[in-house]
């Protein structure tokens, strides 16, 4: 069992979470050239080693997380909230950051 330290709920079994996808993928603007969309939708680095990925704490707080995990050893290097505003609030960066204003 992989144990994922959720920043909201603490360390939990990975069976409480749903794996999302490679978190290094950034979708381009809607009017970006076809090549950019082709790359974002279909092409992957597929790293053997430490990669960024999204997980959702489905059977917990239901937050989306960005997890830095080694795909060969399953060692987890870091976990943060996926929403930048929420992550900033957790990091104590000020009250406005997560309020969506």
């Amino acid at each position: 069992m992989i144990r994922i330290p959720c920043p909201f709920c603490g360390e939990r079994d990975h069976s409480e979470f749903a794996y999302g996808k490679d978190a290094s993928v950034q979708y381009p603007p809607l009017d970006a050239p076809l090549e950019d969309w082709h790359e974002a939708v279909f092409l992957r680095d597929n790293i053997r080693g430490v990669q960024l990925e999204t997980w959702q704490h489905l059977h917990g707080c239901r937050q989306w997380l960005v997890v830095e995990r080694d795909t060969a050893t399953h060692h987890i290097h870091s976990v943060r909230a996926a929403h930048p505003g929420v992550a900033a609030v957790l990091a104590g960066a000020g009250n406005d950051a997560g309020s969506g204003k």
């Binding site: 992989i2 079994d13 490679d22 597929n46 795909t71 060969a72 399953h74």
Partner: peptide
């Protein structure tokens, strides 16, 4: 196992 893995061993769920 539902998450990306290069480890040739599986997990309990």
């Amino acid at each position: 196992d539902w998450y990306k893995s290069y480890a040739q061993r599986g997990n309990l769920p």
